[in-house]
Every structure is written in structure tokens, then in C-alpha cells.
Design a protein around this nucleic acid. Structure first.
Lengths: 211, 211, 211, 211
DNA sequence: AATGAATGAGTTTTCATTCAT
DNA sequence: AATGAATGAAAACTCATTCAT
């Protein structure tokens, strides 16, 4: 009868305390990694920032890479869940897309550190430490693309959308465009030309898409 | 009676040899950096791969960072020029966009290593070594976005395109979508779902765009 | 019920141990530096001689130069204090000079390594690492010369010495002569011609000096 | 029937040119070594300063140490000869001493670079490269001290000086005092307290010495 | 004969990881 | 259980020396 991870109130106090400590370590690490990159952050630094001893870090994580993986995995899951929920939480396909864009923007805005981490690991360079997590993250990403494609597909089936392209391609396109706009807005805050309203992103899409 | 490809036929032999050596170093470095990232590649490794002594590397590049910067700058210029040329080499705006997508695809396909390098430095993580080159690259990127926006603008003015959105936003959108599709196709070659014909990317765009 | 030599009995045990380690490092370094010079001693060597790991050296000293500076400063302070005390610890000027010569000889004899270090940094070559400590050492040396000049001056005022020369010049002369004799005796032990009794050095001086 | 080193006009032209080149190398090296010390000067630097190729340096000197030794030896000989000549070039002992002090001061003033080199190799630190030259230089120095002691001895014998101390000790004392004053004056030009007239140095001596 | 490009051993320094307290 | 001092492998960089031109 052991309590499940999703209902932490049932965990023995000892266990709960451990999880809280672990979380503090991960939080400190997230800030540092997203600011300076994996190789430019020392365990010493993480220890100091999280106010634990180095040895204690090694009690929780086998090594530096393990800590990093745990961090990326945690963040990816959080991100993934938020986005998937957004897609699920509406009946109409147009609303699903709106929810998706809004949720994504919110997550981006709320946690720039996480975003930087996420993109440094999914886009571009694969010189990352994530040989292992990598495939898991790709799978999650693919799963999400499939779900998004599903929205387009059912939208087409229900006549909400015109059949302008392969639903999966549309999913990739929407994912790309939202990334592009949000990154442009977040990582280059000097650029003033980005639309305030996230829905504006969709307008471009909907111009050709809506039936 | 020798005629060099571009123009360097006038360089003294010594100089030409030096440039060739330099290029071999940069080539070796590109392969390694794009595979493993800046911090995970040692000068030792670059020396061995390029078959020069470490000391010789340091004759050509002041330090590791200098070598990296030279590499990124070289690649970025090549990339930028190819893309800008493509936009310029047509009169009709629709043709310009087609040229752009084709040129971009070609460059991507021809040099995956370079792409990885490029994206690891423009997207995502900013824990990069490029504090200096960085702004130069951003500027180039911005310049390109402006040029692309110009295409949309004149297309609208000439009645080729409908006025569905801010031209700059359209530029960001097209840039994002091409990135998304090409990266999906190149970096994840297992994914078979991407369109063979690069023009297919544009179809999605043109659905809503064309007048 | 333990009573330490000077005063550190109040330091926590941990701190005392650290200081002892630091001292062992400095001792090893003094031996090596005085024998081979700054640039000819590697951190590896110091680590091996002092039986610590290289990393441990770097826990105590920021870098090689920092270690060297600490060493020179420590030795210079010790030397300076000994000499100044000797001058102070008598009422009669002639006794002050005797004390000075004896103390200097004692310090020289007791620590040839230190002497070599001291002279390599105050005399001769200024290609030293001591840009920083340097001025501090010069100041100490100057301060000492002034004190010695003071002895000559008050000796003259009190009629103990004849007014044969500027007191500061006499100070420089005595400092030089003691250095010359002691170095000759210590650094070239083959030379048997030096006087056994350090006071003999003063005889030369006193011949013209005493009233 | 080969021409002697002291009459270079007899050397074949080829040989003379070689010697001139060698001299230029040594001159460049003297400037650099006296400013920065042995280890802080690279062969590259010496080559550039003397405007020869590195390879040419190695044609003249077996290695860096050999070049340094040659330099120190050359300077020491020059110095030694000047001083010895000064002692010889008078009949009266008091004049000999005056000549000595004047000659020494002149040499010091004329070639601070050489002095620095000389002192960094005779005084203090023996972390020098001169394991070999060393003994030669000590011998020369000892020879000079003997000569100076001879002056004191004959001066005493002739009744010019009082018999205040062992002549050799007096020689060491005078050598030390002149060094002290001249170094103080030369290496620390900020110190204004040194006597202008080098003879003033002797006054201190003569006070007790003169019969 | 003179050159200087190329070499690579050797140096300083960092930092992940271990383990005695 | 938590600590953090100690470790030493690995990396960036320098420079004396060689040798093909």
C-alpha cells in the first residue's frame, strides 16, 4: 500500500522531506544550467546555491549528468503535461488551438529558464548530455505532434478546417511558428515587433485554414 | 594558366597554402564541434583530427574561442549569403519565396554539421561562447528577416498576396516553419512523414496568402 | 592545560590544522623556490614535496603567484621584525648596532633558504613576480634604513659617534657591509676568510666612527 | 697564424661579419634578459629584436642557455677588466681606491642592464642558469677581491693606511659598500638621498682608514 | 647559409568525485 | 546522515628546438 508519486501527501514524512530537498537542488540547478550551460556550472556552485554539501548532492544524484538528466526530464514532463492538457480541454478544434497557443505562451513567459533549457536540448545542437533522456524527450515531442495533428484531422473531418495540407505537416508548422514567435519575443525582448496577443499568431494560420 | 574557382588565384603560393591549412583546421573543428559541442571538444582532438600539432593550431588561432568564433562566423556568412542571394534572384515575389525555401533546403541538406552549429548558437541556449560573434549573427538574421518581410510587403503592394498579416510577422512565420520542417527532416531522419518536395512547405503558406 | 608558543591557542582545532598544512606547503615551496627560482619550480613539484595533491594547493592559494607572494611576504615580515627588534632592544647606540649585526647574522645562519629568496627579490634582478609585494618590501626595507639612520643620528647627538657622514649614508653602508660579509660567508662557505665573530664586521666601522 | 680575438681587424672579413652578427644577437638578448629575466624571454623575442631568424640564432648558440651563458660571460669579462684596470692605473693606494670607485660608478651608470644581469647572477638567488659560468664568475670576483685586498695590504705596508682590519675584510667591505650605494642610486632612482659625488662613498671609509 | 613553420613536451589550473569524520 | 577536504585526471596554452626549403 505504498503511496503513489502523484499523491505526495501520503508519503511518510521522511520521504517527503527528501523530495523537498531534492526539489531545492533541482531548482538551484535549473537556474544555473539555464544561465550558464551544463559544462559551465560546477557541482560546487550547485551545492552552494542550494545550500547543501557536495556530498549530499551525490547522495541524491549518482553524478552530475544524472542530476542534469533528472532536471531536464522533470521540466519536460511539466511542459508536456501543460500543453497536452490545453489541447484536451476544449471540444471545438479552433478552441483547442487557441488553448494550445495560450498555454504555450503562458508556460514560456512563466519560465524562461526552463525554455532555454528545453530548446538547448530539443533544437539544434545535440552535443548535449542527454543521450539517454533524449529519446524520451523526442518521444514526448512526437506524441504531442501526433496529438496536434489529431486536432487538425478531426477539425477537417468535422468541416471546421479546409483540407489545405497533411494534418501532421500542419502540426509541425504550428509548433514551429509558435516557437519562432515566442522565442523571438522572449529571448530577444528588444525586438518590439512581435504581436502582443498570442492569438495573433493563429490569425496567420487561420487565414488559409478556416473553412 | 590556372583559374581558381572564386578569385584567390592572385595570392602568393605561401599564402594559399596557409589558407588551405587553416581551412583543414576549421573543417576538422566543424565536424567535432557540431557533433560534441564546444566544451566537449579538446584542442588535442582538433589537432589530431586535422593532423596538425597543437602548436600549429595556436599559430593560426589565438585560442580555442578564437578558433570557434572564426568557424561560426565563416559558416554564418556562407549561410547568410546563400539565402539572401536566393531572395534576390527573382522578380516575382512568389518565385522569391520558392527560391528561398529551395536554397535553404539545399544548404541544410548539404551541410548538416553547419546547421547544427548554427542552431546551437542562434536558438535555445545562450550559454555559448559567442558573446562577440553573437550580435553579429543576430544582426545578420535580423537583416534577413527584414529582407523577407520586404518580399511580403512588395508582394502585397503588387497585389500578389492578400494582406493577411504584418509582413514582418509573416517573415518570422515562414522562417520558423522552414526551420521546423527542415530540422525535423534532417535532424530526425527516422521521421518519414516530412514532404519530399520543399515546395510543399509553401503550400501551407500559400493557401491563405495568395491573392 | 596546553600553552602555545605565541598566541594561537585560541584557534579552533580545524583552523589550527589548516594553518599547519598551509605552513607545510609554504615550507616545501621555500625550499624549492630558493633552490631553483620561481619559474623553475612547478606546482607539481611543490605538491609532491609537501605531500599534498595539486588540487589541495589550489584550495589554499589562488594560483602559483599567490603562493609565492604569500611566501615572500611571510619571510620578509619575519626577517624585518627580527631586525627591528634587535635595534630597539638596547639603549646605547653602540649596543644597538651590535645587536643588529648579531641578529642579522643569526637570521642569516638560521635560514639560508629564506635569505636567498629575500635577496633574489630585493637586490639585483627585478624580473620577479613580486610586482605587488615588491613595493611593500621596499617600504619595509626603507623603513628599516630610516631606523638605522636614526641610531646613527642619536649616537651623534649623544656624542657616542663622530659626525663622519650623513647618518642615512652610514645606514646604507652598514647594511651593505653586513650583507656583503654574511652573504660571502653563507652563500660561499668555501671561502674561509670571513671573520668568525660577527662583531668583527663592526670593528671596521667603529674604527672611524667611535668618538 | 690566426689573428687574436683582441685584434679583430686581422680577422677575415667573413669572420668579422659573423662576430658582428653574434654581437647584435647578444645585445638584443642583454636588453631583454635584463628587463624580463631568463625564463620570461623567448627565443622568438630575441630573434625578432635582433632581426635574425630563430634558426640563425641556433647557428650561433647551441641553445637558449648557451646564449645566456655567453652573454653573462661577455659582460662579466668587460666589467672585470674595467675594474681591474682602474685598480692598476695609479701608484698611490688612495688613488687606486678612488679610481676603483669612479670606474665602478661609471660602469654602473653606463650600463644598468648589465648591472641588473650581473647582480641577478652573483648576489642572492642562485636559481640561475649559470651552473657553469657561475664558478668562472666567482673566480673572477674572488680574483678581484684579492687584488683589492692587495691594495689595502700594500697601503698598510707603505704606511698610507692604518692597520684597522684584515685587508681582505676591508676589500669585502669596500666592495659591499660601493655595491650598496650604487644599487641604491641606480635601481631606486626615486631615493634622492644618495651622494652625488662617488668619492663621498670613500669618505666613510677613509675616516677610520687613513693614517 | 639563412629561414621560420611545425612540433609536442611540459606547465598551470579546474572540477567531478570519493570517503573519513 | 550529512559534510566538505582532498584528490588527480584532463584541458588550455607556451615555447625551445628541429629541419625542409
Amino acid at each position: 500500500m505504498e503511496a503513489a508519486a502523484t499523491e505526495p501527501q501520503k508519503l511518510p514524512r521522511r520521504e517527503r522531506e527528501r523530495m523537498a530537498q531534492r526539489q531545492e537542488m533541482l531548482d538551484a540547478a535549473l537556474g544555473l544550467f539555464s544561465k550558464k550551460g551544463f559544462r559551465n556550472v560546477s557541482m560546487q556552485e550547485i551545492a552552494e546555491t542550494s545550500e547543501f554539501a557536495i556530498g549530499t548532492l551525490y547522495k541524491f544524484f549518482k553524478n552530475k549528468e544524472d542530476l542534469y538528466r533528472a532536471l531536464v526530464r522533470e521540466q519536460a514532463v511539466k511542459f508536456h503535461e501543460g500543453i497536452m492538457l490545453a489541447i484536451a480541454s476544449a471540444d471545438d478544434e479552433v478552441d483547442k488551438l487557441r488553448n494550445f497557443v495560450r498555454a504555450k505562451e503562458e508556460v514560456f513567459r512563466a519560465n524562461v529558464a526552463m525554455i532555454r533549457l528545453y530548446f538547448s536540448e530539443t533544437q539544434g545542437a545535440r552535443h548535449n548530455v542527454l543521450a539517454g533522456v533524449d529519446s524520451e524527450m523526442r518521444d514526448k515531442h512526437e506524441e504531442f505532434l501526433q496529438a496536434l495533428a489529431g486536432v487538425f484531422e478531426s477539425g477537417m473531418a468535422r468541416g471546421r478546417f479546409r483540407q489545405i495540407a497533411d494534418p501532421y505537416h500542419l502540426a509541425v508548422a504550428l509548433e514551429s511558428v509558435t516557437n519562432g514567435f515566442l522565442l523571438q519575443g522572449l529571448l530577444r525582448p528588444d525586438r518590439q515587433k512581435m504581436p502582443e496577443d498570442p492569438d495573433a499568431i493563429l490569425d496567420i494560420f487561420f487565414q488559409g485554414l478556416l473553412a
